[in-house]
Design a protein around this nucleic acid. Structure first.
Lengths: 147, 147
DNA sequence: CTAATTGCAAAAGCTTTGCAGCGCA
DNA sequence: TGCGCTGCAAAGCTTTTGCAATTAG
């Protein structure tokens, strides 16, 4: 079967390897979902996004399956789940370097950024309160500066 | 009519004033919702929380109304909406000093904290990218340190 | 071969909306 | 009095679940 690679940055073999490393069974739906997430079009997808993209490629996967696959991926640490706008979840591959997000309130564009001093400060704050930092979410809501 | 003050930190008059200042009509449901939000029990409530608390006090307000009231309050800047866990929204009064949140993954307790250097760094980052910071959400997911 | 995975449809949250009646300013 | 607010029930969305059939290892 010929699978359109969805403009993926990764070979099909590499994607299969991602699954095996995570101790996940290699199935057609999982490969298809990973191919979409790996595609270079954008990096944040809702379950519905993935569903529609696969529909358009005539590589349909049931929406319920997509939710189950994404949940498995998240559990395996392959994928991160975000709730930027609150109504629905967005997923992105986790293998990238850690980063936070900036969302433009005008264009709804998502920009990724990283700042070490903020990362470090977070750890310190958790420690101050007697906790260890497990994870965090930082989202900046911004607007283009008008001149 | 005698309104149980729901252990509020604010007098009924002060709560009415909050509404008038925001140019909102003073109605019974709005006063009741504000009384709950102002109560000292906790500071983050879901719409359902507010609904059930008012039920228990025999000061029922329709759930739909609570959602509409909270939306109005948010719009007026009286209330902040959070999506800590993603599934549902939590609301808190906005008049308090700005702060971020730390959530214990074991106890689900919500701890508020403030850190000026992080606040400042955020502004700088937005600026670097040609944006102005409008708002932000920082949530730390933590666990008690085990000895 | 066995346990895990899939697809479909149905159900389950949370939240919003339509509409008729009520209430604040 | 007039516009906005409320309640109820119904609808909307995203996400989850039950179940029988299919598939990976």
């Amino acid at each position: 079967m010929i699978e359109a690679m969805c403009d993926s940055k990764m070979s099909k073999e590499a994607i299969q390897a991602q699954l095996r490393e995570s101790q996940l069974k290699v199935t057609v739906p999982r490969l298809r979902v990973l191919a979409v997430l790996n595609s270079s079009k954008k990096s944040h997808y809702s379950a519905e996004d993935v569903y529609r993209i696969l529909l358009k490629m005539h590589q349909d996967v049931g929406l319920a399956t997509i939710y189950r696959v994404l949940a498995k991926f998240e559990q395996a640490g392959l994928v991160l789940r975000h709730h930027f706008e609150g109504e629905y979840a967005l997923f992105e591959l986790a293998y990238k370097e850690h980063h936070d997000h900036m969302i433009c309130l005008d264009s709804h564009k998502i920009i990724e950024f990283k700042n070490d001093s903020i990362e470090e400060a977070q750890k310190q704050i958790a420690k101050q309160y007697g906790f260890e930092l497990v994870d965090h979410r930082l989202v900046l809501y911004v607007r283009k500066i008008k001149q």
